[in-house]
Design a protein around this nucleic acid. Structure first.
Length: 572
RNA sequence: GGGCCUGUAGCUCAGUUGGUUAGAGCAGAGCGCUCAUAACGCUUUGGUCGCAGGUUCGAGUCCUGCCGGGCCUACCA
C-alpha cells in the first residue's frame, strides 16, 4: 500500500467557477484520488478556497458585505457545489484559516532567518478615494502608445504594449474611477528566489517525467533574461495574513499582509492541519503527510492545476519549502492542464459566457459532466466544449453503451429467470475469451490511471463497456434460452457480474451511477478486480437484485438547443 | 517583441526513439439481431497528416521559412 498526497489548485473565492476551472484541477484530482483509494492506497486529498487579495475585497464590497463574512459565505457555496460534483476532498479548507496564518508566518520567519527575505522600498500608486494602494491592473488610463482609453497599468489590452502605471495619460482608479492618485513610497518584503535558482533548476531537471507544459514554463522563468527574479511577497492590504516573523512582530511591516500567492500554496499544508483539527487528531496526523522527518518520507505528492498556476507551483512554492531549511515534503509530480474553451470562444466569468458549476448541476446530474469533462480533458492542448459534442458523447457513451447494457441484462434476467442471479450452466470459451480481453484492457486502464492519462483512461473504460455489448451480442442469451435455458443462465450470471465489475471500474469517473449499479445488484462488494476471474464470480447464483431505473437519460435535441441559447452569454 | 504549445478523416482526438498499404470514437452507408434507453453487433465510405522547401535509402514524426490557433511574459489570481 502506498500513501498518496493529492492537492488540487485552490479556487479563488470571488464567485462560482465555470466548467473550465473544474476540469483544470479539481475534477482530475478527484478522479485520481478515487482511483488510488479504490486500489487500496492511503490517500489524502486536499483542496481549499483561496480567500485573500484585492479581488476578494472588491467582490465583498460589491456584495455589500464585510470581507470575512463574504468569504465565509462563498466558501460554503463552493463547498456545496464541490459536494454536488462529488469531489471527494478529505478536507476543503480555507486559506484564511488560523492554521494557514500560523504556517505562513512560520515560513516567512524561517526564510528570514536563512537570509532569503529582503526589505525593499518601492514606489506605488495610492488612491486617496479608495484609501488603498492600487495594483497596476487596477489603474486605468489612456495608452500613450495607441490612445486606447481603457489601458491598464500593466499592459494595454488594445495594442498589447507593456506599460508602467506612470506611463498612462490621465490615470484613474479602476475601482472608483477617482483620478486622485499619487505615488507613495512603501516598503515590502521580497523572497530572494534568485538565490535558490541553481537548486530549483537542478530540481526541475531531475523531473524528466513531468509534462512538457509544466517543465517548459518553469525553465522559461528560470532562464529568461537575468533568470529567476525575486518576488514581492507582501501587500498593503487589510485582508490577508498579517506580516509576522514567526510569532514575532516584523518591525516596519505593521499593517501589511502577505501576498496571496505566498500564502495560498501553504494552505495545502494548512488545510491538512485543518483536517486534523476537524477530526480531533493531533499534529502528528497531518505532519506524517508533510514532514519527511515525521513519516512523510514514503509519501508520493501529486499536484493538479491549470497551466496558469505552474510558475507558482514549480518555483515560488518550492522556493518557500526549500528556503525554510526544514524537511517539508516537496511535490513529486505536477499534472497541469490547458484550458477548456466554450463553443468557439473562452469561458468568461465577467460576461457570464459558458456554463458555471452551479448551473451545470441544475440541469444535469454530476456524472454527465464528469464523464464528458474527463473524457475530453485538455491535456495536450486547449479543448472545446460544444453542446452538440456533449449531447452525442453523453447519449452514446453513457446511455447507449453503459446504461443500456445494464438495462438489457437486468430486464432480460427479470423476464426469464426473475430478479435473482440465475443458477445453471458453466462458463465456456466465450466467457474465457472476454475475461482474457478484460484482463488486457483493465491493465491498460490501470496504467493510464497511474500515469494520469485521463483521456486514454476514459477511452479504455469505454472499450471495456463496449466489450460487454459485443459479448452479449455473440452469446445471444435470448436465442440460447429457447434451446438451452441453463446455458442462457450462465451467460446472464456472467453478465450480471460484469455489471458489478463495470461499477467498480467506472466509479472514479461516474461515482453516482456506479453506486446505483451496486445498489441494484444489492452488493457492497466494490473490491478492485486484481483477479478478473474472481471478480466475475462475486455474485453467486440465487443472489437477489433489482432492475434499476434508467441510469442515464438521453439529452434531447430540444434540451440541447434550449441550453445552447441560455448559456450563450450574460449570466442572470 | 520574446518564449512555449498547437494545426492529422465532416467532428473530437491517438499516433512511442523517423521504417512497409496513417489509427480510434462519433457522424454517413450497408447488413444482422430483437434482450434493451429506436438501444446492440458486424462490415464499410472518408485523410496530398496547415503550406513550401530541406536532411535521409526512408518523414505525420527531424531542420528552415511561411500561414493559422492558443497560452505565458513575473503587481489578476
Amino acid at each position: 500500500m502506498s500513501r498518496i498526497l493529492i492537492t488540487s489548485a485552490i479556487p479563488y473565492i470571488n464567485g462560482i467557477k465555470h466548467l473550465g476551472n473544474l476540469i483544470g484541477s479539481q475534477l482530475p484530482a478527484d478522479l485520481y484520488a478515487r482511483y488510488q483509494r479504490a486500489r487500496g492506497n492511503e490517500v489524502m486529498f486536499i483542496c481549499a478556497t483561496d480567500e485573500h487579495g484585492t479581488p476578494a475585497e472588491l467582490a465583498a464590497a460589491k456584495a455589500g458585505q464585510p470581507v470575512a463574512e463574504y468569504c465565509a459565505q462563498m466558501h460554503e457555496v463552493q463547498a456545496d457545489i464541490a459536494k454536488g460534483f462529488r469531489l471527494s476532498f478529505d478536507f476543503f479548507g480555507r486559506s484564511s484559516s488560523e492554521r494557514n496564518k500560523k504556517l505562513t508566518q512560520h515560513f516567512a520567519g524561517k526564510l528570514a532567518e536563512n537570509g532569503l527575505i529582503e526589505e525593499v522600498a518601492e514606489k506605488q500608486v495610492y488612491s486617496k478615494a479608495d484609501g488603498r494602494f492600487l495594483p497596476d491592473r487596477y489603474i486605468e488610463g489612456t495608452c500613450p502608445n495607441c490612445g486606447y482609453d481603457k489601458a491598464r497599468g500593466d499592459q494595454c489590452e488594445n495594442c498589447t504594449k507593456q506599460l508602467d502605471p506612470t506611463d498612462l495619460i490621465e490615470p484613474r482608479s479602476a475601482i472608483s474611477g477617482s483620478t486622485e492618485l499619487e505615488v507613495r513610497e512603501t516598503k515590502h518584503l521580497y523572497l530572494r528566489q534568485s538565490r535558490l535558482r541553481d537548486k530549483l533548476d537542478a530540481w526541475i531537471d531531475s523531473k524528466s517525467d513531468w509534462p512538457v507544459l509544466t517543465t517548459s514554463i518553469a525553465k522559461k522563468w528560470l532562464h529568461d533574461g537575468d533568470g529567476l527574479r525575486d518576488r514581492g511577497i507582501t501587500r498593503d492590504l487589510d485582508w490577508g495574513v498579517p506580516v509576522k516573523k514567526g510569532d514575532e512582530p516584523w518591525p516596519g511591516m505593521e499593517g501589511k499582509v502577505f501576498y496571496v500567492w505566498f500564502d495560498a500554496p501553504i494552505e495545502y499544508i494548512g488545510a491538512t492541519a485543518e483536517w486534523a483539527d476537524a477530526n480531533g487528531l493531533d499534529d502528528s496526523a497531518w505532519q506524517r503527510w508533510w514532514r519527511t522527518d515525521k513519516g512523510a518520507q514514503d509519501v508520493r505528492y501529486v499536484q493538479f492545476m491549470g497551466k496558469d498556476n505552474v510558475p507558482f507551483h514549480t518555483l515560488s512554492f518550492p522556493a518557500t519549502i526549500m528556503g525554510s531549511g526544514e524537511p517539508w515534503k516537496l511535490v513529486d509530480y505536477i499534472k497541469s492542464f490547458n484550458y477548456l474553451n466554450y463553443d468557439g470562444g473562452q469561458f468568461s466569468t465577467s460576461q457570464g459566457r459558458g456554463v458555471f458549476m452551479d448551473q451545470a448541476l441544475s440541469i444535469l446530474p454530476a456524472d454527465y459532466w464528469r464523464w464528458w469533462l474527463l473524457s475530453h480533458a485538455p491535456e495536450s492542448s486547449d479543448s472545446e466544449f460544444t453542446w452538440e459534442n456533449f449531447q452525442v458523447s453523453v447519449n452514446k457513451d453513457l446511455a447507449d453503451v453503459l446504461g443500456n447494457f445494464v438495462s438489457r441484462v437486468t430486464k432480460f434476467c427479470r423476464a426469464k429467470f426473475g430478479e435473482h442471479v440465475p443458477a445453471g450452466g458453466t462458463y465456456g470459451p466465450a466467457e474465457h475469451k472476454l475475461i482474457a480481453e478484460l484482463k488486457k484492457r483493465i491493465r491498460a486502464y490501470e496504467n493510464f490511471m497511474e500515469s494520469m492519462e485521463i483521456r486514454k483512461a476514459a477511452q479504455e473504460l469505454r472499450a471495456i463497456w463496449v466489450a460487454g455489448n459485443e459479448y452479449l451480442q455473440s452469446a445471444a442469451p435470448w436465442t440460447v434460452f429457447k434451446e438451452d435455458p441453463d446455458h442462457a443462465a450462465a451467460i446472464i450470471r456472467f453478465s450480471l457480474n460484469l455489471i458489478r465489475l463495470y461499477a467498480v471500474l467506472s466509479a472514479p469517473f461516474i461515482p453516482d451511477a456506479a453506486e446505483k449499479m451496486l445498489q441494484a445488484l444489492q452488493t457492497k462488494n466494490d473490491s478492485w478486480p486484481d483477479n478478473v476471474e474472481q471478480a466475475l464470480s462475486v455474485l453467486p447464483a440465487g443472489h437477489n437484485f433489482s432492475v434499476p431505473d434508467v441510469l442515464f437519460a438521453k439529452i434531447s435535441d430540444e434540451q440541447r438547443e434550449e441550453w445552447q441559447a441560455r448559456f450563450a452569454g450574460s449570466r442572470d
